[in-house]
């Protein structure tokens, strides 16, 4: 039997030691109880140092997770995304109202109204820049793969960076398509024909949008897979891995060629 231990993978009596203890510490899920004591196997590997190494890794990991949880910068991004949406729909509404006013009397008040809407519009840009800046910091990999804007939207839908990191790729692929997915499912249930949506928010990405229709599903699947890996790295380690976005770009180039 195979078991994931904090210091590596156990396989029928032998252990492959992890080359990144923090990573393996965070990723030692076993659905069933392990039939031996982890420390016995560990002491064969680390000897008397076992507990001091375990303790050092545990403290480092815990400090990072706690710090991240306390700052909750993901919540800040989510609040900003929602505020931005609200401002967008307000601006639309206000512009309509401005037109109504203008049709009756295009006077000083209308110009003043227009000026104030313009202020709100430019404030929108400030919020967008703030979102981009924080996304770069807390989710560098997701940002690199889909861009800060779409990344922030995915984060908003997921509810937290932790949840986004826990989503399987298949879920990430349809984030934002929930409405149409439910519609399609209920049509199918009633025995009607329906096309299940293949892509949610990430469909807006140029790498998907600009492909011929029949290739979009494939691209979306690939991208969602990389986003899922990226989100996990972002949540647990926060370091950028350039390879992910590079692979996405190569896939796009290959798909757009033939």
């Amino acid at each position: 039997m195979r078991y994931k231990l904090w210091f590596g993978e156990y396989d029928d009596g032998s252990v492959r030691i992890s080359d990144n203890l923090k990573k393996s510490f965070l990723n030692c899920f076993n659905s069933e109880p392990i039939p031996f004591s982890v420390s016995e196997v560990g002491k064969k590997t680390f000897g008397d140092e076992y507990y001091s190494i375990l303790r050092k890794v545990a403290i480092e990991v815990a400090r990072e997770l706690v710090e991240r949880e306390l700052k909750r910068e993901d919540r800040y991004v989510i609040a900003l995304v929602r505020a931005l949406d609200e401002i967008n729909s307000s601006v639309n509404l206000l512009e309509e109202k401005l037109e109504e006013i203008r049709e009756v009397r295009d006077g000083r008040l209308a110009s003043e109204f227009e000026r104030r809407i313009a202020i709100l519009k430019s404030f929108r840009g400030e919020i967008e820049r703030e979102i981009e800046e924080v996304m770069r910091k807390i989710a560098p990999n997701v940002s690199e793969i889909v861009g800060e804007k779409l990344g922030a939207r995915l984060l908003e839908r997921a509810g937290s960076l932790k949840k986004l990191a826990e989503f399987p790729a298949s879920t990430i692929q349809v984030i934002g398509a929930e409405k149409s997915l439910f519609k399609a499912l209920s049509r199918l249930k009633r025995g009607k024909r329906a096309r299940t949506p293949k892509h949610g928010i990430i469909f807006q990405h140029p790498f998907i949008k600009t492909l011929p229709r029949r290739k979009r599903g494939k691209m979306a699947r690939f991208m969602a897979g990389k986003i899922s890996i990226g989100a996990r790295i972002d949540y647990f380690r926060g370091e950028i891995n350039e390879k992910l976005s590079e692979e996405v770009r190569l896939k796009y180039e290959r798909l757009s060629r033939n």
Binding site: V38, L54, I59
Partner: peptide
Amino acid sequence: IPIFGDASKPENYSGI
């Protein structure tokens, strides 16, 4: 040994 985790999910720290 500190573990920042949910006690209702021992699976998650079963390898520790």
